[in-house]
Design a protein around this nucleic acid. Structure first.
Lengths: 195, 195, 195, 195
DNA sequence: TATGAATGAGCCTTCATTCAT
DNA sequence: TATGAATGAAGGCTCATTCAT
């Protein structure tokens, strides 16, 4: 990585948690100056404007979440264990894997009516997440772990939605009580599909 | 209603969709001036500052959603029909009952890390929403509509979370396809509890 | 006094200490609303605008000081005792007779470059104050209390100036130590003129 | 001096007479924009806020007065000549050495009840001024110019107070007549102490 | 006489961005 | 590549004043 790429990466790493916590509109370039200890000019050397930096930060946050989740799940072999691990990964939204919480719900709700580009970025990740889950289920069906008549796409959507909704509930509550409920019940719904 | 209260109400009505669409930070007092055709000074006659106006707008949006939902459900008599009506009420997040979409997910995600007061307001509404659903289920159990061993609180949390997650999915997708999936599957989950 | 005159007087009484403490520019009509618990419109019924109210307040503050000083000195008979009483009246600028301190130094310094009308009001009072002192001395000379070659006008100016300067010193110091010095030394200067 | 320091200095130089003439509250950032021909943003590059700029301006005005006085007095050798020169330096308050007049009386009266920081700044300068005068007297006593039983601290306070009071009288009068009186009489009080 | 809603200019400050060095 | 001075539009808010009631 060249010096320039290194600095660019450094800026994104420092900016990402700010954007994910305070929102895109709520984060000022001066906040990022402070976090990076870089000059105003330096930021603009690496990013044409705030929007482009914000986009990079959104990508970074989503990739970081994705990577951590993927690494975590790679420890598990069976489809059932992977699904359970997914649920356990999101067990406490007050202690999120990515500072500020799930970037999909954060940037999705901020951008849906105001920023087409970010909205589309989030949409892709939302689709990818559901596909990630349904693929696990499909493998589970193919290798005889799960009942063959289980609908992988539908359950992936339900599971994804329920977890995201659970994140909302828990973050405003400041407690993960309700995510525990969701965790237990989704595991039950999975368990009944096991052969 | 006095002249002052009328104007105050008028300002809230005009400001509420702005805040729910652009966010609190993303909405400027000048946006509200334009929407109300009132002068800057006039806005401050009725609201001490932007935060207080924003709080009123958050309340208004949540009450509006609440009222519309309540009125809609009052058309239905059985617990099952009420639950189905709830799901149908949220069937298309791209055409929301309240401009800007669900205020709980919008303001909840904006405020969770930055605005304690709004966060608590949303939390109360989130709790109330789950209680609203679990109360319907409890009545259904009491009057013999549903199986007595069904857990009302757990299902209310799951249903609420899934709908909110579905709203996120659909709003970034610009389509309600996935909400239809959620709608169908939640109805199935309800149906199996019917005696 | 009619109702209108009474309210007008009431407003001045409440506004005077505000203007004398925070200055004319530093005092807002809203400060006066708060202090009087009167409505904005009511203030403007009695005073055409802020400047006119400020002028009344300046007058009131100076008259109040004047009256208190005059009443205080009327307890004393000899010219010497009157001069001493004057000095004692101003002995502690941190506990001034008029809230905010001497209105001549307060409004004089604020207005000298910016408000001709107020400047002239203060000037008249400054002249009157010196005349008040020199008249006492003149009476003292005429009745044989003081040496006939004492210059009443010059000493009045010196004494007035020294007391005003002492007020400045003490108010920024938050202590009347230096006024005590001035008090003692001016009394000595007076004493040597006694026959 | 770096570019930034130069601009900062330039702003202070332009702002100082404004603050000293119109007062801190009475001077708007827009006045300083106009005086400097700089943009609003540029002002805030160099000063965090108006208060900090005002503090710098207060310092500048007091240092300017101090320096001019000091330079003026350095032309004189004897203690008597220095004291006389001090009095002559302040002979015409309508043509002050520092635009707006003596910053101690200007900022002291504005700040005494409203701005602790500025009040303390002025207090330090007031104390320094009196010490400056008493040190001259002490040197005069030590080298046999003045009578050894003269009280330097007391006279310094009286002289300082009388000059400041004289400034007030003259500035509201728009004439230095009374300062001439003070000048002559203080010189007489000094003269009688000469050996 | 009294009220308080309405006004809009003006206040201090922040913002994203540009550019000479 | 990096700096930080400079910009000016825009932000939230306050102000003195007006006016219908």
């Amino acid at each position: 990585m060249s010096k320039g790429e290194e600095t660019k990466r450094f800026i994104i790493e420092k900016a990402a948690p700010l954007f994910n916590t305070k929102g895109i509109v709520g984060t000022a370039m001066s906040d990022i100056m402070e976090a990076t200890k870089l000059s105003k000019g330096s930021l603009y050397v690496h990013f044409e404007n705030k929007d482009i930096l914000a986009e990079s930060a959104v990508d970074y946050n989503m990739e970081k979440l994705s990577t951590q989740l993927f690494n975590n799940l790679s420890n598990f072999k069976t489809a059932k264990d992977k699904l359970y691990a997914y649920l356990d990964f999101f067990i406490d939204p007050t202690q999120p894997a990515v500072t500020g919480g799930c970037p999909m719900i954060n940037f999705g709700t901020e951008a849906d009516d105001t920023n087409e580009l970010i909205k589309n970025k989030v949409n892709k990740m939302v689709i990818k997440s559901q596909k990630f889950l349904s693929d696990i289920i499909k493998v589970g069906i193919d290798n005889g772990e799960f009942k063959p008549d289980w609908n992988p796409d539908d359950f992936a959507t339900m599971m994804f939605a329920m977890v995201e909704g659970g994140i909302l509930i828990c973050r405003v509550a400041g407690s993960n009580d309700k995510m525990k409920v969701i965790n237990v019940n989704l595991k039950k719904m999975i368990a009944v599909q096991i052969l």
